[in-house]
Each structure stands twice: as structure tokens, then as C-alpha cells.
Design a protein around this nucleic acid. Sequence first.
RNA 1: CGGGGUGUGGCCCAGUCCGGUUAAGGCACCUGCUUUGGGAGCAGGGGAUCGCAGGUUCGAAUCCUGCCACCCCGACCA
Length: 488
Amino acid sequence: MGKGITSRKENYSQWYNELVVKADLAENSAVRGSMVIKPYGYAIWEKMQAQLDKMFKETGHSNAYFPLFIPKSFFSKEANHVEGFAKECAVVTHYRLKNGENGIEVDENAKLEEELIVRPTSETIIWNTYKNWIQSYRDLPILVNQWANVVRWEMRTRLFLRTAEFLWQEGHTAHATREEAVEEAIKMINIYAEFAQNWLGLPVVIGTKTENERFAGALETYTIEALMQDGKALQSGTSHFLGQNFAKAFDVKFADKNGQLEYVWATSWGVSTRLMGALIMAHSDDNGLVLPPKLAPIQVVIVPIYKGDAQLKDFDEKVDAWLAQFKAKGISVKYDNRDIHKPGFKFAEYELKGVPVRIAIGPRDLEQGTCEIARRDTLEKHVIQQEGLVDYVEKLLIDIQNNIYQKALKHREESNHKVDDFESFKKAIEAGGFVYAHWDGTSETENKIKELTKATIRCIPVDNPQEEGKCVLTGQPSKQRVIFAKAY
RNA sequence: CGGGGUGUGGCCCAGUCCGGUUAAGGCACCUGCUUUGGGAGCAGGGGAUCGCAGGUUCGAAUCCUGCCACCCCGACCA
């Protein structure tokens, strides 16, 4: 492992790339645009999954699994949906290989009658299925989620933030009424927001997307938008109210209490391994990863400082007792008594990997009944008594979780700009952060602004204060400010 | 798909312009000894069809032709 990583100031983008690789989270694979998520990175993802899954189940959802392959004809049933995804679909056309002149080649005689699309999202296959599941209002609602991989053939990819294949969950629900579906979509975006704030330690703005940025096939897209340290926004989760679009496309009707046939109302919602990118970019520093304790695979690491095997034995005995106490409290702890590295190396390594709390114990401590505690978020170190160590660390982990969130929140607040003319707007966008500005509500203006500044409307915040104003570009009347930012 | 760049042990790379010993160095790896409170030191060791395929030549990492891959910048996106 090489020493150090590029600093954020030097090159933020390079800092991110190096961090992902050096912290052992993921690496590029032999397949263009597709990553390998390494055990340490996957462990974080599993913790995210576990918590989200719990939250989904608590709100009445069940998991299921739908096929990876979607017949092309399904895909084209919803006009906006096809249009939105057509440019980034992987297509399976054949089902057999053969030995040819140049080695293994595709067997032209094994062409599929109908091509299969590798799912970029599953609305179509799921609504084709729901058609058979739904006859009456008694079959509703359907509250299903699936954990899956999806493929979107991206031009340019970056580990976790944008890869050709990624992991996610997609919830797909069916409801008897519009109100219930809208309520569901809002409920789920709120769950995402709660997860982001309480687990990722990431403050988010909840809002709706403009028509331009809306999911292909949705009537309304709710989003959580987070701000990264470099002042760029990251869409971290979306929840869609799909209206009756997919029900109509797949002819999914139900008989209501009066025996009337009605189209079903739908939602879908998802978060992906992109959250890993959000997590990394939101908190980490020039020394490496900074993980919120609630998602850290290792929450506490204990490093002994010793001379010779005999001395190590003294530590082993003492630390074994601590390990048992930590485990009893459900705190994941690692005792690193490897002899192949010196303590200094281990300190650097665990900082790079974002372990929230490090305990060092050496001969001096053994004499004095103390140990040294270092917290990753502030890099502060101090010596405490061994007595009460485990309780102390338990509290410290909570404190770190809070501090990480507060720090990110402070950064976002300090990066907010309110502007009323286009010159200030351009400057504010250049400076980075969320820019609150009036907008005349047209796609033309939105596109023009994107062209001129690379900034897009991230969202229209929910409960947005209404105020009279003039569009920052056209001067047309506007009733509210929306959030502009450059985005990932 | 446009514009630029790079391919040399696991990783970073020198050498390529101007062809000529056994392809250099650092990191990592293995062995041994000494070390251990912020990325240890010394000694020894293993590991490379120089992206691929042709061609020129007595001789190619180096020159020529073709191909491939990857990276960066643009248009698209969670």
C-alpha cells in the first residue's frame, strides 16, 4: 500500500478515485465500466442493505425477485419509459457460442426470436407480472421490493457513482387510489431521508424533480439531494409516483367495491450502490475514509504496542476481556495483534479505512492502567483509564455519528446561496453548493441555464416557501425558489 | 461517437526520438536477523512471451502497418 492519497484540494476527483481503491472498497474490473466491490466495501453495503431492508419490512413491504432479462416488447409498451432508457440498454441477441475460425464466436444460428433487454430497471417486467396478480381491490395494495443488479450502459463511469452494472433495491407498489400511491411515494422518500441522515450521517433536501429530471414514465419524482464536499450535488435516492401509466401500458385493472374496473395506481423507488459514493464523498478527509459508526464494518480497532512475544501475551489476555465486553454490547471490534506491521503502519491503515475508534495500548498503559483513544472524525487522541473503557467507547461512537452529521450539515448550510440575478447566479454556481433561485417553470429556461452554467435544477424542496420573484434568467414571474447545482 | 493521451514483473514507472550486452529503479512479495508509542533497518531472493498480430533488419521494448485495451476531456445518466 502506497503512502498517502492525493489531497481533496489538489484534485478532488482523483482523491475520490484513489480513496475508493486504497481503502479497499472497490476496483475496476476487466469488464469496461463494471466494478468489483471488494469485501470491505461490500461489508458497508451489506450494513446499508440490512438497515434499509428492516425499514422496508417495518412499513409493510416484502421482498421478491423478478428476472434479469426483459423481452424487448415489454420494454417498449410505455412510451416515455423506452425513450428514457433506450440509449443505455444492453441487449441479448443470441443464446449459444460455437468454435469458429478465430476461436469462440457467437453462433449465428442461435439467434433469439425476441431480443432480451438486460434490465435497467424492472417496471415493465413487474407490471406485466402484476397484471396476473391483480383482479380486485382485495388484491391491493401490493408492496414489493427487490434487491437486484441492473445495467445501464454508461459512456463514462466512476466507481460507485456511475457504473454500467450496479446493485440497488427497487420497490414496486400497486394501489387502488391515486392518494394512496402518492402517499406511498412520499413515505418512501421520507424513509430514504431518514436513512441518509441517521445512518449515513448525510443531511439531504427532500424535493420533487422538474419535468426534465423526472424518471421516464413517472408523473412525479421525489428525490433526496445531498451536497458533497466539493460543492456538487448528488442525487441519493428517488421515489416515483407513476400514476396509471404502467397500469395502462400493461392493462392492469382491478374491480373496486362497486364492481367497476379501474386502472391500478403505481409507485417505484430505489437507492443504489451510489450511496457508497455519497458516504465516501460526504465525510472522508485527506487521511482517508471517515465512516459513520453505524455503517462501519469495524467500529473499534485495538492496536497493541509491544516488544516480543512474551509481552504480547500480557496484552492478549487483557484485550480478550474487552473484546467480550464490546461484543456483548453489539459493537464490532477488531484486535490487530499481527506481528508483520508496526503500530504506526496500523494507525495509518485504519485511518485510511475509516475505522471510527482506535484504541492503542502499550507497556506504559499496562503499568498505569490507561489506554490511548483516537477518534477518526476529528483525529483527536487522548489517554483514558482502562476502567470504564467499553462504556466510554460506546458513548464515543454515538458522539462520532452525531458529529459527522453535524459537520456535513454545517458544510451544506455554509454552501447555500440565495441569488436574484444571473451574474450572481453564475458566480454562486461556480463557487459550488445549493443555489436557491427563482425559475419561470419552463424546460426551455432550465435547459438554457444548464447550457450556460452546467447547473441543473436538483429539486423543488417540499414545503417550499412561496414568494413572489422573477426568474433568474428570463425575468418572468415566479412563485418560488428552486435549488440549482452542478451535480454528479 | 468526436478530441487528446497511455500500454514495459502484482503496482508506479526508466529506457523508445537516435535499433546493439543479462530490460534499470522504487513499492509490494519471500527468507533471515535486528526492530515495535505514527507508514522500520540491513542482507539475501523470486518474479517480464516489453498490449496483440504482421513486417523491416544480422539483430526490435525501440522503426513501419494493422488491430485491441484502458485513461482524460466533451454529448447521456442513479
